[in-house]
Amino acid sequence: MAQQVRGVIARAKGEPVRIETITVPDPGPGEAVVKVQACGVCHTDLHYREGGINDEFPFLLGHEAAGVVESVGDGVSEVAPGDFVILNWRAVCGQCRACRRGRSQYCFNTHNARQKMTLADGTELAPALGIGAFAEKTLVAAGQCTKVDPAASPAAAGLLGCGVMAGLGAAINTGGVTRGDSVAVIGCGGVGNAAVVGARLAGAAKIIAVDIDDRKLETARGLGATHSVNSRSTDPVEAVRELTGGFGADVVIDAVGRPETYEQAFYARDLAGTVVLVGVPTPEMRLDLPLLDVFGRGGALKSSWYGDCLPARDFPMLIDLYRQGRLDLDAFVTETIALDEVEKAFERMHHGDVLRSVVVF
């Protein structure tokens, strides 16, 4: 029987979100209903509210979530009722050209639940990243549920569903950071600081945090950055070069996603070094680089989608590291809030006051 629960809805571009009653249908074939325990407030949710993703209003926001599977539809074998899961937006298909080549982390045909959750009047909702977890319960494709150790804190575990995984993966999976490397991270919000943590986990010898906010730089140092640069007062390219013997870093991660920060990343890397773009640009942004410099500096220019993660592989591993005390996911939880405080959390995010606000049910 369909259930009615509360959820955070964005009805129109720029309008404050509101809590409304939504209808969650019983899971159909390949689907699961998850009772959400915690969901992080991610900048992507704000992008949805501002119309920066698409204009398919109304949106059911929220996607960085963990919870317990309540029920599953026909044909579901990967999870069962009672499983503690992290929700993901990369339910791999297993059939596309990337999956057939053994590169499921690049799956080009990821899928979501076929049925739609609706408002009380029957209006269909567009769930953020196919999840919609600012709700007491949500309907997803079963492949969007990754079973992990139930002893993990839901507030911390859910952050692997998006921002923390994006940053960690940008360093480890996309950037290929390894022992002894020098790494610079431009932009030290939630994703950038997760990249700092990822570089530390991978054994980087030098991790340079770059930001315009001293508060964020202090947080980055606490999470493993060996050096910090305030780019409001210091040229970040020159600073990174100075800290790396005049050469530049082996891997530079742009966690901002603006043309000016990408250019900084490009010139702050060593010859044959790697640039990783994980910050999300807006559609109107353009980049102008001398093609000769692109050729002459060599190396790799990469974009990181979701930290190039494979949830079934990466989430359980990272939760194990968290449970062992080797990955401090709790450090990313600045505050826990109620469902009706999401709009206020957007304001605090805009002012740079939090790494993550997390809705706890």
Results as ranks from 00 to 15, higher is better:
10 A>T: 02
14 G>I: 02
16 P>H: 04
19 I>P: 00
19 I>H: 01
26 D>M: 04
38 A>C: 08
54 N>V: 10
60 L>A: 05
74 D>E: 11
74 D>S: 15
79 V>W: 01
80 A>K: 15
80 A>L: 11
88 N>G: 13
98 A>M: 12
99 C>A: 07
103 R>V: 04
105 Q>N: 15
116 K>I: 07
123 T>I: 06
128 A>R: 14
136 E>R: 14
137 K>E: 03
144 Q>Y: 03
148 V>G: 05
153 S>E: 14
154 P>Q: 07
165 M>T: 03
165 M>S: 12
167 G>K: 07
181 D>F: 09
182 S>N: 04
187 G>N: 06
209 A>H: 07
218 E>N: 04
234 T>C: 11
237 V>F: 05
238 E>I: 08
243 L>R: 15
246 G>H: 07
246 G>E: 12
249 A>N: 09
255 A>Y: 05
268 A>H: 05
269 R>W: 04
273 G>P: 00
276 V>S: 01
276 V>W: 03
278 V>Q: 10
285 M>R: 15
291 L>A: 13
297 R>G: 11
298 G>T: 00
298 G>A: 13
299 G>R: 06
303 S>V: 13
306 Y>S: 14
316 P>D: 04
323 R>D: 03
323 R>K: 14
339 L>A: 06
345 A>F: 05
347 E>D: 15
347 E>W: 08
361 F>G: 08
